[in-house]
């Protein structure tokens, strides 16, 4: 159990049978009165963010949330298969469980799989990945200044907006948190 005095950003708690990440915690107190902790929490399952207030001194359950390093093996289009790099145990996840992470999975690449009570609830790809463009409109040489972009499809089927000079077959670096193009990678 955690008491409100343990509250801080990043704490993982369990409320209404669901794991939550504390994203904000404020001490609130009217003049000469009871104090409260006004928190903002994010569901580790759905990503929904809600406000919850606690009378100071209340306790709340600790969410049994762990991260495991896993290697992405392959997908049959329905299931995505991963192997725990420590135990070599294999797991299968559905597209729902992956959320947006399917966009950035590269065969034999490592990801962090978050489990709650040993049940996988989300997959965190590396912050940056380098992937190949399988299709985009032909490039316009020398256009490095206008800031205009065009959509490009990657090996996983994900779409990223890239500058006009980028060509089909180029490898690009992408920020997986925002899904945005960073740079073209040579070689």
């Amino acid at each position: 159990m955690y008491s409100t005095s343990d509250f801080r950003k990043g704490l993982k708690i369990e409320i209404d049978g669901e794991p939550w990440l504390m994203v904000d915690n404020q001490f609130v107190k009217p003049g000469k009165g009871q104090a409260f902790n006004r928190t903002r929490i994010k569901s580790l399952i759905t990503g929904r963010v809600i406000d919850r207030t606690f009378k100071s001194g209340e306790t709340v359950g600790r969410a049994n949330v762990e991260e495991h390093e896993m290697q992405y093996l392959y997908s049959d289009g329905e299931h995505w298969n991963f192997m725990n790099t420590e135990t070599f145990e294999q797991i299968q996840l559905t597209k729902d469980q992956l959320d947006d992470a399917w966009k950035w999975l590269q065969e034999n690449g490592t990801v962090q799989v978050v489990t709650w009570n040993d049940r996988p609830i989300s997959v965190e790809p590396p912050m940056f990945v380098v992937m190949e463009i399988t299709y985009c409109e032909p490039g316009i040489k020398g256009d490095t200044a206008t800031g205009a972009t065009k959509p490009a499809t990657l090996t996983t089927g994900a779409t990223v907006n890239v500058p006009l000079f980028v060509e089909m077959g180029d490898r690009i670096k992408v920020d997986t948190r925002t899904g945005s193009y960073i740079e073209r990678v040579r070689g």
């Binding site: 609130v28 107190k29 009217p30 009165g33 009871q34 409260f36 406000d51 919850r52 207030t53 606690f54 009378k55 001194g57 209340e58 709340v60």
Partner: peptide
């Protein structure tokens, strides 16, 4: 403004919460 966890049956805490979250 919702009801803080732990304040549901506590008139003193509810009074303070309404003061802090709605009156002030």
């Amino acid at each position: 403004i919702g009801v803080p966890a732990g304040a549901e049956g506590d008139a003193d805490a509810l009074y303070c919460w309404i003061m802090a979250a709605a009156v002030e």
